[in-house]
């Protein structure tokens, strides 16, 4: 029964994702296309000028990065509680995308910062906590890669991810506390005008779909790699 359990679920995943992946891929292209088109055609903001465009690339990247960490955390919990091999693969697969979204958020944040604040980097609370989030992704990936034994690596990385989840709100809180203490430049805040809101929401949806598509594709690749390896080893699977 154990052996059945091990292989049945990746099998189901392959079938399910085979149907889902084309749908999410098309939806991703649609959302990003429409979102970018709307983004380019919105009127320039009176304060931020045309740099408001970066908003549509920056903010969704941050949201997608957080979603990726959330995905890793859920996979880690499943992995530790139910020892489910698919969730090990899924957790590991989500990390590089999370790191890339975080990096994209940081880079676009810096590019946005130059015209807004006159310098690429300001120790703004949001940017600072995203820099720390990037290191959390790096640590998670490094631990995965460092441990040879895959089962052991999966469990260790899962424990680290869950410790990270407990800590992320504390890090965010502490960084906010810190930024008020040192009175750095505060990020331009205020209500978003509805003209910007729609493109932003569509871009967010597009980024999430992009993440989900890439994630499924990566999981499929890893499962196929494993099957190929098992075949080459001459074992039964």
């Amino acid at each position: 029964m154990n052996w059945l359990f091990r292989y049945a679920n990746p099998h189901n995943f392959m079938r399910l994702s085979n149907v889902l992946l084309p749908i999410t891929a098309v939806a991703t292209v649609l959302c990003l296309g429409v979102g970018l088109y709307l983004g380019f055609t919105v009127p320039a903001d009176y304060q931020q000028g045309s740099t408001v465009l970066l908003l549509f690339i920056h903010v969704p990247a941050d949201v997608a990065a957080e979603a990726a960490y959330g995905a890793i955390a859920i996979c880690s919990l499943l992995s530790l509680v139910w020892r489910h091999p698919l969730s090990d693969i899924a957790g590991r697969a989500a990390a590089p995308f999370g790191a890339v979204f975080t990096a994209l958020g940081l880079i676009t944040g810096a590019l946005w910062g130059k015209p807004m604040w006159g310098t690429y980097w300001v120790w703004d609370a949001r940017l600072t906590s995203f820099l720390l989030l990037l290191f959390l992704f790096f640590g998670y990936m490094a631990l995965w890669n460092a441990i040879e034994d895959e089962v052991r690596a999966a469990r260790a990385a899962a424990i680290l991810a869950l410790v990270g989840v407990v800590n992320i709100p504390i890090i965010k809180f502490s960084v906010e506390w810190w930024s008020t203490l040192h009175q750095g430049e505060s990020i331009v805040s205020g209500k978003i005008a509805p003209v910007y809101l729609w493109p932003l929401l569509i871009m967010m949806l597009g980024y999430m779909l992009l993440f989900v598509s890439l994630w499924m594709l990566r999981i499929r690749t890893v499962i196929l790699e494993r099957r190929a390896r098992t075949l080459m080893q001459g074992g039964a699977a």
Binding site: F138, G139, A142, G164, S174
Partner: peptide, 9 residues
Amino acid sequence: LIILPLLSP
């Protein structure tokens, strides 16, 4: 690498 970000608070 894995503990310093956690210790930032």
